[in-house]
């Protein structure tokens, strides 16, 4: 098969179930994203003003929480949060550690990267760090909304992947997960470990940290890696933002008045004659 990127050699070692727990690292890939409530101001044509609150991507909160939960049954397992971001993304790694990760890896970059590159960097950082047993991500990030990094990461490491996962059970040498494909449809999937899991919102209630958790997280180690240390071949394919503009909102609200029956009649009229949907 022709591959246009992902040319790095890959390795993975299947942990023998239950035998060699020291190698059972659980990695959680996290992203430093603007708070969804923040005002986004476009700057420089393709970027945003970053003097706003950034936090751990909401789906990644579920991923970290699940990793910490699984770890409680595996005393030797270690939960490692991995982030590709600017130096300021350390706060997001600290948040992940306050929610249960044992340590962090910050792959430093000076600019936003697309998901093709991101997945290469995450794969290289994880491979250089240890042997993954489960790799969690969020099902998507709320800033670029790409919905694909987990799949590319899995491909780079030749691992199975499930997304929008709302339940994880350890099952022998792998996991059994429930993936919510759509409203009312759940796929039950068996994956051998190592594997990649994209956390969905229904997975759990995030472990919001207590003050002692936050204090403890400050003492947990964060290893900083430069992109150069990972020697990633630059991929042949890419996605580059050429222009970013504020979304225009130009609605002119008109009032519907009168009795409840009057309002109902006007709505039906609008649906029929203006929107032409009924």
């Amino acid at each position: 098969m022709k591959r246009v990127c992902c040319g790095r050699p890959v390795f993975f070692v299947k942990p023998e179930s239950g035998m060699n727990r020291k190698i059972m690292n659980i990695y959680v890939c996290v992203k430093h994203v603007p708070d969804s409530a923040a005002t986004i101001t476009v700057e420089g044509g393709t970027g945003i003003n970053e003097k706003i609150t950034f936090l751990l991507n909401p789906y990644d909160e579920h991923a970290v929480t699940e990793a910490a939960r699984i770890k409680t049954g595996l005393p030797d397992a270690e939960v490692v949060a991995v982030c590709l971001g600017k130096p300021t993304a350390e706060t997001t790694l600290r948040a992940a550690m306050a929610m249960g990760a044992d340590r962090g890896i910050l792959i430093e970059t000076d600019r936003p990267q697309d998901s093709i590159f991101t997945a290469l960097a995450l794969a290289a950082a994880i491979q250089s760090d240890g042997r993954p047993w489960i790799i969690f991500t969020g099902k998507e990030s709320i800033d670029s909304e790409g919905m694909q990094t987990q799949f590319r990461l899995a491909e780079n490491l030749s691992l199975p992947v499930a997304t929008n996962v709302i339940k994880v059970d350890i099952d022998g040498d792998g996991v059994r997960v429930e993936s919510e494909r759509e409203a009312g449809t759940i796929d039950v999937i068996r994956m051998t470990a190592p594997c990649v899991i994209g956390a969905g919102k229904g997975l759990n209630t995030p472990n919001y940290p207590t003050f002692p958790d936050i204090v403890k997280s400050r003492k947990k180690p964060v290893r900083r890696i430069g992109l150069a240390d990972l020697a990633i071949e630059s991929p042949a394919a890419g996605m580059q933002i050429q222009e970013l503009v504020p979304a225009v909102e130009q609605r002119t609200p008109r009032a519907l008045t009168g009795s409840a029956a009057d309002i109902a009649a006007q709505i039906v009229d609008i649906l029929k004659n203006e929107a032409k949907v009924i």
Binding site: V42, A237, M239, I241, L244, P246
Partner: peptide, 10 residues
């Protein structure tokens, strides 16, 4: 925001 994104690849 609305982003215009250019794709490269085969």
């Amino acid at each position: 925001t609305i982003a215009t994104i250019a794709l490269t690849g085969s």
